[in-house]
Design a protein around this nucleic acid. Structure first.
Lengths: 235, 235
DNA sequence: ATCGCCTTTACACAAGCTTTACAGTTTGCT
DNA sequence: AGCAAACTGTAAAGCTTGTGTAAAGGCGAT
């Protein structure tokens, strides 16, 4: 999966207030700074304003200026990754958008998982081609060594095979070592969606992490905070 | 789980009289003030009437105005958490509802436990995003050190193993050190429900707290205010 | 179609919250 | 003082809920 999911700043251009509210909530919850414009004209001027955006979510059908126009004009000067959103499901839109330089295309209605998956895919592609800068710091806590730049984890100097999600959960726990991390936080930051009732997926990822870690080093390095979440033990 | 937020007021919008009666009885029993409207129009006007609601339970299929319409119009001005109820189980409804800004979706028929779980999940999410995290300060009173970020308590520099509830009781007492804290307050803020007659659970939590603290440091740091509640001694 | 992996389901288990029970204590009343 | 009623402390039982994890299911990627 992606080597590095480290979005800082996202611009959302869509006239659907409900949708932009939702996107804003979720993306903010994932730790990103989100800016919203509700028509094409305002969106374009913000996009080329000088403020740097790592990703633009762009609706096709909008008042004043549609998404294709925005994209075309934007591409005259910027290479910012763009994910197009549209209510129509036909291929023509898709092809037109991609020809104009969109990075991907997402038909409405879409669910969070799909949105997150596509955002991740774009960011991965972009950061890899842009030389994939490893600005992330390596971490070493309680005999666990984690290197974001190479997506590698070593415990007691033995390499572990982690999935991307497991890696991100571990990284979040290590970044907050000796501090409680709630399941809500993990769900938002790692999976990009709020924790739902009866959702056990975080438990599973932690369980799998523990299994892989304890296969190499004895003792549980992850403490359960019942009814709250988890905590990485510092020692 | 965040128990520091107590639902006060719930609005139920559903044309199924039997169901609303049941919900009303049940939620009232949990200590919430419940208001019921039996069609979408009445529901919407109540929701935006100025009376504050902490949560709205909203049926999809209703006369006059369906749940999606209500939700859409509500979202123009309000961010009140909404839990959608519907007889249909298909994903499209769910996605549409979530896009319009619903917080969750509950297919009928549902049982009490599921309803309560989903309400809790929403409340948890809501209070978390409403700045529950960063403002919690470490406290040091009468040789008791309490750190919310790590959910850790040390007495005379020796770590205690407290449950989350015990931790929250102690924190509440420390926040109000040298001031009386009634059992009613403790029940509301820590357990999230009003104190019932013959309810001894607060006494038990305090008793367990005392036991754990005095195992490490002699002398009772918690004073009993007979007929009122408890107080943490400052010295 | 196949693979990998995320999510859901199911169930046993454990943690810990609440209730029960009873002894001890305080308060209020005569 | 004497007594009853109300309140509190706490051990132990009971019960609810959260958690660990295997296994099945689902879904995007290839």
């Amino acid at each position: 999966m992606n080597k590095e999911f480290h979005l800082q700043s996202v611009l959302v251009i869509d006239d659907d207030i409900e949708l932009t509210d939702m996107l804003s909530t979720y993306l903010s919850g994932m730790g990103y700074s989100v800016n919203v414009k509700n028509d094409g004209e305002a969106g374009l001027s913000e996009a080329i304003s000088g403020h740097h955006y790592d990703l633009i979510l762009l609706d096709v059908m909008m008042p004043k200026m549609d998404g294709f126009d925005v994209l075309q004009k934007l591409r005259a000067s910027h290479t910012t990754p763009v994910l197009m959103l549209t209510a129509r499901g036909d291929d023509y839109d898709r092809i037109l958008g991609l020809e104009l330089g969109a990075d991907d295309y997402l038909p409405k209605p879409f669910n969070h998982r799909e949105l997150v998956a596509r955002i991740k895919a774009i960011v991965r592609r972009y950061t890899l081609s842009a030389g994939g800068g490893g600005t992330e710091q390596d971490l070493l806590i309680n005999d666990i060594f984690l290197s974001p730049s190479s997506q590698q984890v070593k415990v007691s100097d033995i390499a572990l095979e982690l999935t991307t999600t497991e890696f991100m959960v571990l990284r979040l726990l290590m970044l907050n070592a000796a501090q409680r991390v709630t399941k809500e936080q993990i769900s938002l930051k790692v999976l990009g969606k709020p924790l739902q009732a009866f959702d056990r997926s975080i438990d599973m990822h932690v369980s799998n992490l523990r299994k892989k870690i304890s296969a190499v080093a004895p003792g549980d390095k992850i403490k359960t905070l019942r009814g709250v979440g988890y905590m990485l033990l510092p020692e």
